[in-house]
C-alpha cells in the first residue's frame, strides 16, 4: 500500500510543478505585451521609417495575449487534474483498506455485506481513471498549443530584426523589443519543456 500511496503523492507533486512552471510564464508574457505596446508608440513616432514594424507590434501583442490565455488554460486543467488525482488517491486508499478487511476478516458473520461498498469504490476508481486520462489529454493539447504559439513568436522575432534594420534612428529602440520577444520565447520554451518532463512523469505514473 505504501508504494502505491507514495506513487500518488509523486503524481500530485508533478502536477503542482506544471502549474508552478507555467505561472512564471504569465509575468514574462505580460512583460512582452507591455513591450509590444511600447513598440507601437515608437513605430508611430518613427513615421514612415516605422511602418514595417507597426503590424509586427500587433502580432507581438496578440502572441503575448495568447500566451497568457494559454497559461490560464493550463493552470485550470492542472488544477482539475490535481483534484481528480486526490479523489483517485482517496478511492485507492479506501479500496486497499476495504480489501484488507475482506482478506483478514473472512470469518466475520457479515463479511459479504462489504461487497456493494467494494464494487462502488471500484466503479469510482474506473471513472476517475477515465476522467484523469481525459484531463491529461487536454493538458497535453494546451501545452502543444503554447508550443506552437512560441514557434510563431520566434518567427515574428526574426522578421522584427529584419524590419528594424530599416527603422533608421529608431532601430535600437525597436531592436530592444525584438530582443525581448526573442528572450521571452526562449524562456517560455524552457518552461514548456520542463512542463513536458513533469507531464511525462505523471503519464508514466498513471500507467503504473
Amino acid at each position: 500500500m505504501s508504494a502505491q500511496t507514495k506513487h500518488e503523492e509523486d503524481k500530485l507533486v508533478a502536477l503542482a510543478s506544471i502549474a508552478a512552471e507555467l505561472y512564471s510564464v504569465m509575468s514574462i508574457a505580460w512583460g512582452v505585451s507591455l513591450a509590444a505596446k511600447n513598440a507601437k508608440v515608437i513605430s508611430a513616432q518613427a513615421g514612415e521609417n516605422g511602418l514595417g514594424f507597426q503590424p509586427i507590434t500587433v502580432f507581438i501583442d496578440e502572441i503575448s495575449q495568447l500566451a497568457m490565455q494559454g497559461v490560464n488554460d493550463i493552470n485550470n486543467e492542472a488544477l482539475r487534474l490535481t483534484k481528480i488525482a486526490v479523489s483517485q488517491q482517496r478511492s485507492v486508499d479506501a479500496y486497499l483498506r476495504f480489501n484488507s478487511v475482506r482478506t483478514h476478516h473472512t470469518d466475520k458473520r457479515y463479511i459479504k455485506s462489504m461487497t456493494p461498498a467494494m464494487e462502488r469504490v471500484e466503479e469510482n476508481m474506473k471513472h476517475m481513471t477515465k476522467e484523469f486520462k481525459k484531463s491529461l489529454n487536454n493538458l497535453t493539447m494546451y501545452l502543444e498549443i503554447m508550443d506552437e504559439h512560441m514557434l510563431s513568436a520566434r518567427a515574428v522575432a526574426s522578421v522584427s530584426r529584419i524590419v528594424t534594420s530599416n527603422a533608421k534612428e529608431y532601430k535600437d529602440k525597436l531592436k530592444v523589443v525584438a530582443d525581448s520577444l526573442e528572450e521571452a520565447t526562449v524562456l517560455i520554451k524552457e518552461k514548456i519543456s520542463d512542463s513536458y518532463i513533469h507531464l511525462n512523469s505523471v503519464k508514466a505514473q498513471s500507467d503504473f
Binding site: R97, F98, S100, V101, H104, H105, K108, R109, Y110, I111, S113, M114, P116, A117
Partner: peptide, 17 residues
C-alpha cells in the same frame, strides 16, 4: 483504526445497517 474497526463491526452488523 478504520480497517480493524470495520472488520470487528462486521461480526455484529452488516455494512448497510
Amino acid at each position: 483504526v478504520f480497517a480493524p474497526m470495520l472488520g470487528a463491526i462486521l461480526h455484529h452488523a452488516k455494512v448497510d445497517q
